[in-house]
Design a protein around this nucleic acid. Structure first.
Lengths: 349, 349
DNA sequence: CTGAAAGCGCTTACAG
DNA sequence: CTGAAAGCGCTTACAG
């Protein structure tokens, strides 16, 4: 248990040598004892640990880390924690990292390369043990090589970066969006719009290509007017509803960039007096916890967030322990989860 | 700009003395120069900074911190980052902290006192400069006193802890929930249920009391059967819809613990074939970004997340700079935002 | 099983 | 304006 130490804060900083002096042993012995080294006799160890606890000793990790050059810190850098997609990934990273008692430092880069660079710099300065990142749009391969060259192993998630030879975990986007598109096609939809996403990320390009490929394979026309790039948030999806409903080709269905856009779009469609899932079919992507309780429940593509986080964290921990790991892309196979937001087409009013 | 340094990683760790030797000056001069001390001649400083950049020098913060006992790290500990309420607070904390170049360490305690304790311990070990926390349910005052006694200044947000003398920022919950309750009463509702929340937090008690006080002031009966404690998430709100709709006193309105519960509840009500905002009026709490785009748009109480985060961060920074700050509770005044989810009562079917 | 001593890479008085 | 030297609090060979 913790003990408040009297009234005078910081009266006298307690350190290893304080304990050593009190007990008449050397600091080496205290250091070893506190870390449960078998080199120390049981009785000595217990006496030391007991005393340390009693006087409220606080281990100084900076000093230890300076000496050992291991910090126990792992950095995690994503676009935005507030986005449930990343939040779900983080949750599983947290779980793995906790298990090996690593402290984790978090950063939102909001797709600003400079902000990400500052963070990586901080990690380097703190002597972090590794970093897991979903690289900001426009991240040069050099930024990642640089941290690796300085002894900070990196693992990529959700997005990959060309020309970088580190392990990378993400869903198979082209395949996944194909599942959603094919599902709509098989229900009888011909005019299917794609809402949201950007060509500036690998994910964005892959998803759009997946949609295009599925349409072409079914012999359906791919109209540029049916592509509404941009939206990636619920708010943006909500606002996109107007544009979507005004499209001159009157699409009967929308393949959305992600669940947030899909839910926003459905809200916008409902606000316009139409019934999402009846008048317009909508698919999401990610299968966030929220997808199942949306109204109507959202048909979406499970993107393996948990899996991505878990595997990325494990591979990083392996690298830290000197295990040789497989470099390059690891694709997680997405799955289609059909719910109520997709039905047979009905002519749009 | 960064430079990758050759092929051999860690070939030779570059440190202050490396620079000093190369340039024929002392490490003291290099140290001063890199931190822009006016003690160093301009020419010397530029020469040093230029060289440091050229050879890819990385500042070792652990070493510096060991010497100065300032780490530039601030800890932030909340229930769960995935909850948009905390995410919005974090956003504004991040903004303030970035400005003064503090690195921030994040922790979800999930209301486990032990997990929070581990985090505080880590902060102490790392020599963090301060901590901002929304204390876990059941946090003993001693846990907070202990960190303060060890030189780690704390600032509380969202929840307060009895018997602790540190600055604390939160919304005025009793007042805020009163706004929502009075609004429903003024629309003509008499049977108003309260959904969600727990008596184990100061916030929970205050909100329930605020509801009770408003009901009593209006001469309306407070029925225990109208109180459904527990739910705090969208999922739980969704599930609570069934219980709510089956309540024997047939409430015509629900005052919800927060926006998440309210949105979940509305989804559940819609799923049951009723129209939220028409058949049942619903109020939220927090005014998350999402509230405005919910269907129907949610009437809710703005809880000042941004304000809480901003002020908490500023006060902490002031404390770090040795400024004496006002201890005790700082209440932020909530505001009612009326939207479409509340209307005049209609007899429940 | 335990101790004396060097060293991790900085910063800070103190001289000059 | 610059340098020599001590010290922050650990851990790790190296002796014994």
């Amino acid at each position: 248990m913790w003990r408040a130490r009297g009234d005078a804060p910081l009266a006298q900083k307690i350190k290893l040598s304080t304990i050593a002096d009190s007990l008449g042993v050397s600091t080496a012995t205290v250091s070893l004892a506190l870390r449960d080294s078998p080199l120390v006799a049981d009785a000595t160890r217990e006496r030391i640990k007991e005393h340390a606890r009693a006087i409220g000793y606080i281990y100084n990790r900076r000093a230890a880390s300076l000496r050992t050059s291991r910090s126990g810190i792992v950095g995690v850098c994503v676009h935005d924690v507030m986005n449930p997609f990343y939040a779900e990934i983080l949750r599983s990273i947290e779980l793995e990292l906790d298990r090996s008692r690593q402290t984790f430092l978090l950063c939102n880069h909001y797709d600003q390369v400079e902000k990400q660079r500052n963070f990586l710099d901080t990690l380097l300065q703190l002597g972090a043990d590794g970093v897991i990142m979903s690289a900001a749009i426009g991240t040069p391969a050099d930024d990642i090589r640089m941290v690796e060259d300085n002894g900070l192993p990196a693992v990529l998630i959700a997005r990959s970066v060309e020309g970088v030879d580190v392990p990378s975990f993400r869903g198979d986007d082209a395949y996944g969006i194909g599942l959603a598109t094919n599902h709509l096609i098989s229900l009888g939809h011909h005019r299917i719009a794609m809402i949201g996403g950007t060509d500036q990320t690998s994910t964005g390009r892959d998803r759009y290509q997946g949609y295009v490929a599925a349409m072409e394979k079914a012999g359906l026309p791919v109209l540029p007017s049916m592509r509404l790039a941009g939206p990636r948030t619920k708010q943006a999806g909500f606002e996109a509803a107007q544009t979507f409903l005004a499209m001159k080709d009157k699409p009967t269905a929308a393949v959305c960039w992600n669940d947030l856009v899909a839910i926003g779009l459905m809200n916008g469609i409902a606000r316009a007096g139409l019934a999402p899932g009846v008048d317009v079919s909508v698919t999401g992507y990610d299968d966030l916890e929220e997808a199942a309780i949306a109204t109507p429940a959202l048909t979406t593509v499970w993107n393996g967030q948990r899996e991505v986080g878990r595997r990325a964290a494990r591979v990083l921990l392996e690298r830290l322990n000197g295990v040789e790991v497989e470099r390059g892309q690891h694709l997680i196979q997405p799955e289609l989860h059909v719910r109520q937001s997709t039905t047979k087409p009905r002519e749009r009013v």
